[in-house]
């Protein structure tokens, strides 16, 4: 959690200075979800992530140096500078990418689970992360149906942070997420997404059940993003959340909560370790070269196509 938090604090600064172009969708406040779920994932498990994906990607084991280099647009980045914040991926670690379209990763995760079963990798699970806003995307509901119909090992993790961009969940979502998921035949539960141990416990049960062949699961994590939907909101001076509401959630900061459970010396040790990791990542990303503009269309196809230039 500390790694994600410090990584993102640095990214916020770099989004202001322009080292990170395009801004970011900060995950700060939601760290307990990615960390609690990932505690039970193996290297060969697959995740699909969201536009707010740094936490999922780092928690699944992506190298912070290469993750930061990706955001810097460097050729040493996870995606060689071709994906950036919204598409960060490490396919070798089962990270099938952050995704710029809300809900789009859910059926991709179902496909990965289908393939795992087809290939006899029965112990493998796929996790689809998405927000409350994605529950209004038809393709997510279609993905629920396919996963349940074919009893696939998929854990759908809904990070309900209360807002679909600026739309409060009570103005965007009819009914209850858990009951909705249960209606599709998913084993569904809700958990306090601000408590990493609670998330880890619930996710542990769900992941184990998926591995045991007991079909797809759904976990709604009640959480909150401490920052705006995207860094551009701050620049535009947009505010749609009540100050008291923000304060009530920041008072439940999952990092502070976990720190209180640790011996102070252990917590300090973790902080120091993370500070060193971040410093290393910043040095690595900062000294990494960019790519030659003549190579801007590299990797467009795996098979050859002689792409004609635009002029």
């Amino acid at each position: 959690m500390r790694l994600i938090r410090e990584f993102e604090e640095h990214c916020l600064e770099m989004a202001v200075t322009g080292t990170i172009v395009g801004g970011i969708h900060p995950y700060i406040g939601q760290e307990a979800v990615a960390v609690g779920v990932s505690a039970h994932l193996r290297k060969d498990d697959v995740i699909t992530s969201t536009h707010r994906g740094h936490g999922h990607v780092l928690a699944k084991g992506a190298d912070p140096k290469r993750a930061l280099a990706e955001l810097y647009g460097a050729s040493t980045g996870l995606n060689r500078g071709r994906g950036g914040s919204m598409h960060a991926a490490d396919v070798g670690l089962g990270i099938y990418g952050a995704n710029g379209i809300v809900g789009a990763g859910a059926p991709i995760a179902v496909g990965a689970a289908w393939a795992a079963r087809r290939q006899g990798r029965d112990q493998q699970v796929a996790v689809a992360y998405f927000g409350d806003g994605a529950l209004s995307q038809g393709v997510v509901l279609e993905a629920f149906n396919l996963a349940a119909l074919w009893s696939l090992p998929v854990l759908f993790v809904c990070e309900n942070n209360g807002y679909a961009i600026s739309l409060p969940v009570d103005r965007g979502l009819a009914g209850d997420p858990v009951r909705r998921a249960a209606g599709f035949g998913l084993t569904a539960a809700a958990v306090d997404g601000m408590d990493v141990e609670a998330v880890a416990e619930a996710a542990g049960r769900a992941v184990a059940a998926c591995r045991a062949g007991r079909g797809p699961h759904f976990l709604e994590c009640a959480t909150y993003r401490f920052r705006g939907h995207h860094t551009v909101e701050h620049l535009m001076g947009i505010n749609y959340r009540d100050e008291a509401e923000v304060a009530s959630w920041t008072a439940r900061d999952p990092l502070a909560r976990q720190r209180a459970r640790l011996a102070p010396a252990v917590a300090d040790e973790v902080d120091a370790e993370i500070a060193a990791l971040i410093a290393e990542a910043v040095a690595f990303a900062g000294s990494s070269p960019g790519s030659d503009p003549r190579d801007a269309l590299d990797y467009l196809y795996a098979g050859m196509v002689p792409t004609r230039p635009g002029a």
Partner: peptide
């Protein structure tokens, strides 16, 4: 045989393809 869920089964194929199908 898929249900009439073109969007989901099209991306399901994407996920399966990345996973080696």
């Amino acid at each position: 045989d898929t249900p009439l869920s073109e969007q989901a089964f099209t991306s399901l194929a994407t996920g399966a393809a990345i996973a080696g199908q």
